[in-house]
């Protein structure tokens, strides 16, 4: 293999006129982070609601939660993004479809919401498991004290359930960040997308993807560290998972 290594490429100007190649990659990183954070917020909120629904005594709520989770987790993420991006605008009423197509930053919004909903199904399943792992008596004790169902979840069940599922939630947060790379297929110039364009402009494929790899690793290391700190912060003295 003849390959001209050129690690200085990062400091050469990119053909887009937006600074160096490093600036190109960093702009992709910023977009990756923005997409991931918005997706994670969506995943946490909707996932929590659906996860709680799956533990309610109401059969209707349970079945809604069940259908939601199976819909979003049984389809490849790539197919889901294509559905939201290419198919949805066509099957909506014409005006709404047109509005969607002309939306500025459409790939960004589609990727954030699409990845967010995909991940929300996973958050929902974990929260359901977390709530299910609490002793049955906890719910009864809350009820017996006169707390309503909402209060019981808010003050008794969820604070414990979220503490229990914090380690797996860390993995889901990392997955959310990594899954945003799929958005390259709908034209989002996030980190992977910018690494690709750097490769196409400069032919320095190894340098481009080495840099992207390192940036992903760094971001995820920061997230892992942050979650560890959070775990320690919310740990309960004397409790098994506490220190």
């Amino acid at each position: 293999m003849t390959y001209n290594w050129n690690w200085g490429i990062f400091f050469q100007p990119n053909p887009m006129g937006t600074g160096t190649y490093l600036d190109l990659l960093l702009s992709g990183l910023v977009l990756t982070l923005e997409t991931a954070v918005l997706a994670w917020i969506i995943a946490l909120i909707t996932g929590s609601i659906v996860g709680v629904m799956r533990t309610l005594p109401s059969r209707g709520a349970y079945w809604f939660g069940f259908a939601y989770v199976e819909f979003f987790r049984n389809m490849p993420l790539l197919v889901q993004l294509f559905l939201w991006f290419f198919v949805l605008p066509e099957i909506l009423p014409k005006a709404a479809g047109l509005w969607l197509k002309q939306l500025p930053n459409a790939p960004f919004w589609t990727a954030s919401i699409g990845v967010g909903l995909f991940m929300s199904a996973r958050v929902a399943v974990q929260l359901q498991a977390g709530i299910g792992s609490l002793p049955r008596g906890q719910r009864q004790a809350a009820t017996a004290l006169g707390l309503t169902t909402v209060q019981g979840y808010r003050y008794v069940l969820l604070p414990m359930a979220f503490r229990i599922i914090l380690p797996p939630l860390t993995s889901e947060f990392l997955n959310t960040i990594k899954n945003t790379a799929v958005a390259i297929t709908i034209g989002l110039l996030e980190l992977t997308g910018q690494a690709r364009s750097m490769q196409e402009f400069s032919f320095q494929v190894f340098e481009a993807f080495t840099a992207a790899t390192i940036l992903y690793l760094l971001v995820n290391a920061v997230v892992v560290t942050g979650m560890r700190i959070l775990e320690r912060y919310v740990a309960i003295p004397g409790y098994i998972t506490g220190k």
């Binding site: 906890q138 004790a141 414990m160 309960i236 409790y239």
Partner: peptide, 8 residues
């Protein structure tokens, strides 16, 4: 029987 104090 199992107290059911709120551990957090």
């Amino acid at each position: 029987q199992h107290f059911e104090l709120f551990p957090h």
